[in-house]
Structures are given as structure tokens and as C-alpha cells.
Amino acid sequence: MPKLIAAILVGLAVAILIAVVGFAGVWWTGSYNVAADEPHSRLVASALTSIRERSITGHAQGIPVPDISAPQMVAAGAKQYAQMCVQCHLAPGKDDSDLRKGLNPQPPNLYLHGVHDPARAFWTIKHGVKMTGMPAWGGTHDDQALWSMVAFLRRLPELSPAEYERLTEQPPASHQEAQ
């Protein structure tokens, strides 16, 4: 029995060594294609998606969600979404963009899917996601502004194109200056 265990351990060590050398070879030679116009293999895409989802879930746990149902909060978030997010995440009546076409992985279409967990959405908006094109808005926007975007995202799937346009409409420049 000890010989069998020793053989298994040696076999396992050899397999690990081969995997490490193979990984190092791919890394050193640059043979893995990181071009955004070629999708990851299924294995890599699955691993990256799993890592991303588990990370966001873990980091978002315990974030207290404020009342995000106030209409003024939704309206403020709508304007920010139109300025910062619509080119990647789309909106009613805006089904694609040149920027979105060049992103890999494709960002979620938030007007079709919305957000189901406000804490996860807040964490993602605040901290961004490495190597996806999702910026970390927490360095340039306070938490109140980020929560207003989450408030808007909760409403977004219910909006018609006309309602979206009404909510995201910017007041004329002379009106903005008067405020």
C-alpha cells in the first residue's frame, strides 16, 4: 500500500510540474492570444466568469443598500447613465454602438437584463472590473451618485425609448447656467 501511495504522489507531482511548465511556456512565449477581437476559449472564459462573479458576490456582501426608490434619485442616475454607460450597456432604442462592438467580453445589456442585486451593482460601478473595460467610477463619483445609478438601473428595463429619452434629456445650457 505505501508503494501505491508513493506512486500516486509521484504521478501527481509530475502532472503538476508538466502543468506549471506548460503554463510558464505559454506565458513566456506570449502564445495565448489576448486580442479583443478573438474570444477566449470556453475553458478560459468559464474560469474568468466564475472568478469575476465570485469576487463581486464576496466583495458586495454586507453593503447596506439605501432606499433607491426616490424618483429624484432615479432621474439623477438616468443622466449619469446617459453620459457614462449607454455606449457599452445600451438603452431602450439604442441597440448597439461602435464601442460595444469592440469589447470582449461583451458588457451586459442592462436595459434587457437590469440589475437584480443592488449591492453587487453598486460594488461593480464603484470598483470596476479588471480587463473588461468596466471602469471604477468610485474615484470620480461619490457614493450618492453611484447609488443613483443603481436606482436608475433598477428602473431601466421597464422604460420605453420615449421614457428613457425624457429621463436622460439634458436641460438647455442657459437653464443649467441659471442653476
Rank of each mutant, 00 (worst) to 15 (best):
L103G: 05
T124N: 06
G102C: 01
P64A: 14
R54A: 12
D143T: 00
H116W: 08
P2D: 09
A13G: 15
G11E: 07
G139N: 12
V86A: 11
T57N: 03
S46D: 12
P118L: 05
P39V: 06
Y81A: 00
K101N: 10
A173L: 12
D95Q: 11
I8C: 10
A173P: 08
G128F: 08
G30I: 07
Q83F: 03
G128W: 06
A91Q: 10
S31D: 08
C88I: 01
I68K: 02
Q170K: 13
F122Y: 15
I5W: 11
Q87G: 09
L156H: 03
E177P: 00
Q170C: 04
P107F: 10
K94P: 07
T168V: 15
A151S: 13
L99K: 04
V74M: 02
L156K: 07
L12P: 00
G77C: 13
M149P: 04
R155Y: 02
T168G: 11
V21G: 10
D117L: 06
G93Y: 04
P108W: 05
A70C: 01
S97I: 12
M134A: 10
A60K: 03
E177R: 15
V44T: 07
A7F: 11
P92A: 01
P39I: 00
Q83T: 10
A75K: 07
L4K: 14
V86G: 03
S174F: 10
L99M: 13
N33Y: 02
A6Q: 14
L103R: 05
